[in-house]
Design a protein around this nucleic acid. Structure first.
Lengths: 170, 170
DNA sequence: AATAAAGCCTACTATTTCTATAGATTTTTA
DNA sequence: TAAAAATCTATAGAAATAGTAGGCTTTATT
């Protein structure tokens, strides 16, 4: 028995793309949570450290999941942690020096859309015969460069700054 | 019982990122197959139509999977199909007029990395409180624009042309 | 020294998405 | 009428993501 919402013909009849139900090839929740956590810690710099539990509640992130994420960020050198009573997490770098590209690479891995176009996680594509002449590869190297131009230049500080941009009169 | 290759500590000891095993947030096989099929059909324009079976063999794509993909492309108006003996598939447009962005949208859906930054498949993000002031959103709209600048301007004809670029002396 | 608060670490489960296959149907040509 | 081909929907299988569990270690406080 097939679920109504995933039934092809009903979606077709209603002209619903599957992306209405799910949103593929997107940023993982892990990455979103990581960014939100870093932003929150960036705003909390006068008052460190911040406990996982507080952070989880404030940002509506499942606590145990957040634990793992923070651990990754810590192991990558972006966070400082302190155990025991009165402990918690705080930023180990200036928000200006934490770039989204780096966060993405820690949480989601490669930024490129195909392995063979990845800068930091290069791998040969399975379906590719001759990489040198692959037109797809060349295009997706361009895409990677364009994406990276944004992500490697946008820092947590920028994200925080942008949050209040709407106050400006346009 | 955990599989060796997925065991965290062994990966850690060998310093292997999980992307070595799998490659997340990337182009789906469906999309890759679609592009390859269109490129193949683009090269076969003097000799149409081409049968699914031949195309599948030539491009090393699982036949029944390819069927579905071609059907999608056909329903979207990019392919012409003919049933019965001597039938098959051929391009319904000039390769110059088939852009990668459009293919991606048919096969994978949105191009943006977050729903709230999508041009064609906009949807509110679950974890977002105030979209107007969301710094993440603004950044990923920039990413989307950068990506689209490449994908919406690169056609199947461009991909084909690029395949022989290496012949040029650099 | 004992206790409680917090992070550390690995494994596991559950859910969802992607990939692929199945099989019956329809259309066309010879 | 038989064979060749696409059409269509459903289902199965595989992989990735999301989330949970629970014991361990460190630190501060009393």
């Amino acid at each position: 028995m097939t679920d109504l919402t995933t039934s092809l013909w009903i979606r077709k009849a209603l002209q619903i793309h599957k992306s209405f139900l799910s949103f593929a090839s997107m940023l993982s929740k892990k990455t979103k949570y990581a960014i939100k956590a870093l932003v929150a810690l960036g705003k909390n710099r006068e008052n460190p450290p911040m406990q996982i539990v507080r952070l989880a509640e404030q940002e509506m992130i499942p606590r145990k999941f957040l634990e793992q994420i923070l651990l990754d960020m810590r192991n990558a050198g972006y966070l400082y942690s302190k155990k025991g009573a009165g402990g918690g997490y705080s930023l180990n770098k200036d928000p200006k020096d934490i770039y989204l590209a780096d966060i993405l690479r820690i949480t989601d891995g490669p930024i490129a859309m195909v392995p063979c176009a990845s800068l930091k996680f290069y791998r040969k594509c399975d379906e590719c015969h001759d990489e040198v002449t692959c037109g797809i590869r060349k295009t997706f190297i361009d895409v990677r460069d364009a994406t990276l131009k944004v992500l490697a230049q946008t820092s947590i500080a920028d994200v925080i700054a942008r949050e209040t941009d709407d106050i400006q009169i346009e």
